Simulated scan of single mutants.
Amino acid sequence: MIGILAAAALQADAPVEWTALQQDNIQVAELAYDVGIALAVICRDDQLMVAITGLPDPAPGAKFRKLEVNIPGAELQASTWRIQGKATISLAPAVYARRLRTADHLTVRAPAEEGEPARRYELALPSDHLALDQTLEACDVPLVLETDLTYDPTISAVTWATSPRITPPNRLPPGGYAEVVLECTVGARGRPENCRAIREQPANSGFARSALLSIRTGRLGLIDGGPPPVGGVFRTRLTINVVN
C-alpha cells in the first residue's frame, strides 16, 4: 500500500480530487499533487490511517517527526507523526481525516532537518469528499465529532518503560470515563516531575488530582521516538474507563 502511495505522489499536474481504491480488506481515499505530495486515508482491518508521502526525508533512524499542520484550527500547530517507510503517519487519524472533509486547504510545514531547509506545502482540498466519507464509514468512524475541537496536537508520543498505576477518583464521573492532559518535566531516571493538569474531562471529576499522583509511579522509555531528555517538557494524556 505504501508503494501505491509513493507512486501516486510522482504524478505531475494531478487533478485535486479524491481517488477511491479498494482491494480485499483495504479501502483508500487519496489525493496526489503535482508538487510530489500525496495524502491518503486508509481503512485496513477496521483500523484507520492517515498518511502523507513525498515529504523531505526525516533524520536517519528516526521513528517520529514533527510537522506543523493547520489542524484542528486555522493556525499551524506542531504535532508528532510516526514514520513508516516513506510515509508519515498521523497519531490521531480520525481527527485529521474529518478535518480533510471540512477544510478547503491543508497547510503542511516540515521543519528544517539535517541541513535541509524547511518546506511548506499549501494543498487545496476538494469539496466533493464522497470517497473519503466511504473510507471513514468502512472503519465505522463518525464523519462529525464535536470533541475534535478540543484535540491537542502538542501531546507527545510517550512510550512508558514502566506504565503509571492509574488510580480512579473516589467518585467516578457519569459513564465511568475520565481523561486528563498533564504537562511534566523529565526527571532523573525518566521519572515525571513538576506535573500540572492542563485539561480535565469531565471538569471537576477528581481524576486530575488522582492522575497527578498516579503518573509519579511511571517511568519514561521514549518521547517522540527518542530518549527522554532530563529537564525536557512533555504532555501526555491519561484516561480511565470503568465498565460496570
Rank of each mutant, 00 (worst) to 15 (best):
L213D: 07
Q11N: 02
A9E: 01
T88R: 04
T88E: 04
Q77D: 07
P111L: 08
D104T: 07
F207R: 03
W81L: 01
R101Y: 10
D140E: 10
A12V: 12
E17S: 11
I223Q: 03
C43G: 15
E200L: 10
R120G: 07
I42P: 04
F207S: 07
D13K: 05
F207N: 06
L5D: 12
Q27D: 05
S90W: 04
P111F: 06
L143R: 14
A178L: 02
G115T: 07
A29C: 15
G175D: 11
A118D: 02
I83K: 02
Q27H: 12
G73W: 06
V233G: 00
E30A: 07
P58Y: 02
A197Q: 08
Q11R: 10
P117H: 04
D57R: 15
W160C: 03
S214D: 14
A40N: 14
G176C: 07
V16L: 03
L123I: 11
D13Q: 09
A9Q: 08
A78T: 13
L182T: 05
P60G: 13
C139I: 06
V230W: 00
R119E: 07
E137T: 15
I215N: 11
L213H: 01
L123M: 03
L220M: 08
I155F: 01
T236I: 13
F234I: 05
Q77T: 14
E116M: 13
L123F: 14
M49I: 03
R99M: 12
P117D: 13
I198Y: 00
A87E: 11
D152L: 09
I42S: 05
P72Y: 06
Y177M: 12
R171A: 13
V141D: 00
L55K: 09
I52D: 03
E113D: 10
G190H: 02
L5C: 03
H105L: 05
D46H: 15
N241V: 02
V180I: 06
T147L: 02
V230G: 00
W18K: 09
A7I: 08
W160K: 05
A59V: 12
N241K: 02
A8H: 11
G54N: 14
L145D: 15
D46E: 10
Q134G: 12
D224F: 07
L222K: 05
D128T: 13
R199D: 15
R98I: 00
P58G: 14
L106Y: 14
A20I: 04
D104K: 00
D152H: 09
T159I: 05
P202S: 01
D128G: 04
F234A: 03
G115F: 08
L31F: 05
T88S: 12
E137N: 11
E30F: 06
A6V: 15
T162Q: 13
F207L: 08
G218T: 08
P56R: 01
Y33H: 09
V95S: 05
I26Y: 10
A78F: 01
